[in-house]
Simulated scan of single mutants.
Amino acid sequence: MALTVHGFDRDYPYASDGLEIWDDIKSWVEEYVSFYYKSAEELQKDPELQAWWKELVEYPYGGLILNRPTISRRFMLEKGSLEYDALAKNPGKEFLKPITGKKETLIDLTIIEILSRHASDEFYPGQRDGGEYWTSDAGPLEAFKRFGKNLEEIEKKLIEKNNDETLRNRYGPAKMPYTLLYPSSEEGLTFRGIPNSISI
């Protein structure tokens, strides 16, 4: 019987890793907020915080490439049209006609690769510029340290999962471990690391 995390198969790395990290972020946020708000009702009455939350929720939806494809060169096909009939006869050829051409795709991928590189001075969840001097409140400082330590433990668990031969989707026939959601990274294009802010 497959092990599950939040109802997902443990061998579905993006879901299982992401949910484990999400739980840790959620716990950190709840603990941090509890230092300054006595109740959920008090939190909901803060207009500045509520406005920020709505903005935060909208960005990932618009930033997901499936919600905003780069380009389509023709309208949706209508039943009975010549193009629709051609698609039924040769889907492989016809499907490629409306999507981005090779030149545009190469430009997009090059830009994404450049923007996806980790900088030498980049910070990840659980890390802060200025170390312990971002607040003078002892409670939030200790909670943030726990958050960082929890993320380090999660990363160790993910490395262990990648060495588990029973989890085929983590390593697979390509012999490449699933590192996308490792919380930290080195400098460069590493296919790992969760930055504190994402611009693409």
Rank of each mutant, 00 (worst) to 15 (best):
G131Y: 05
L141R: 14
A86H: 03
K157C: 00
D23A: 13
N90R: 06
R192S: 12
P13R: 00
L3V: 06
V5R: 11
R10L: 08
R74I: 05
T179G: 02
P60W: 08
W28I: 06
S197K: 13
I71Y: 08
I112P: 00
T166S: 08
E30T: 08
I21V: 13
A15P: 03
I112Y: 04
S184Q: 15
T135P: 00
T110V: 05
S72D: 13
K38Y: 07
D11P: 01
Y124G: 03
G101I: 10
M1P: 12
I21T: 15
L64G: 11
Y32L: 07
Y182P: 00
P98D: 09
L96Y: 11
E55L: 08
I21R: 09
K149N: 13
E155N: 02
N90A: 02
P69L: 03
E42T: 00
E20P: 01
N150I: 01
G130V: 04
I107R: 14
N196P: 05
P173K: 11
P183Y: 09
D129S: 14
A40N: 14
G92Y: 02
E20F: 01
E186Y: 06
D9Y: 03
I65T: 14
E113P: 02
G18Y: 01
K93N: 04
S199C: 07
Y37R: 03
D121F: 06
G126P: 03
A15F: 10
G80Y: 00
L56S: 08
G131A: 07
L158F: 13
E55W: 08
F8S: 08
L109Y: 14
A2R: 06
P98S: 08
K54Y: 06
N90S: 04
L115K: 13
R73H: 14
R168C: 05
S197H: 15
I200N: 07
T70I: 15
Q50P: 07
D108C: 12
E187Q: 08
W22D: 14
I159G: 00
G101N: 13
L106F: 13
E41G: 04
F8I: 04
G101P: 07
L109V: 12
S34A: 06
N150L: 03
L181P: 01
E152P: 01
I71R: 10
L87S: 06
L19W: 13
P177T: 14
E186P: 03
E153M: 05
A174M: 15
F8H: 11
E41W: 02
I194F: 01
S185E: 00
D164S: 04
G62D: 06
V57P: 03
Q44C: 10
K45H: 10
G62L: 09
S27Y: 05
Y12G: 01
I154F: 10
A15L: 10
E113K: 09
R117M: 12
F95N: 11
E122D: 11
E58T: 14
L181I: 00
Y12I: 12
P13K: 00
Y61K: 10
D121H: 10
A15T: 07
I200S: 05
M176A: 11
M176W: 09
N162F: 06
I114R: 15
T70C: 10
E20N: 05
H118V: 09
K103C: 11
W22H: 14
D164M: 03
E30F: 07
T179Y: 02
S116G: 09
L87F: 12
I112G: 03
E186D: 09
K149W: 02
E152D: 07
K54R: 12
P69T: 04
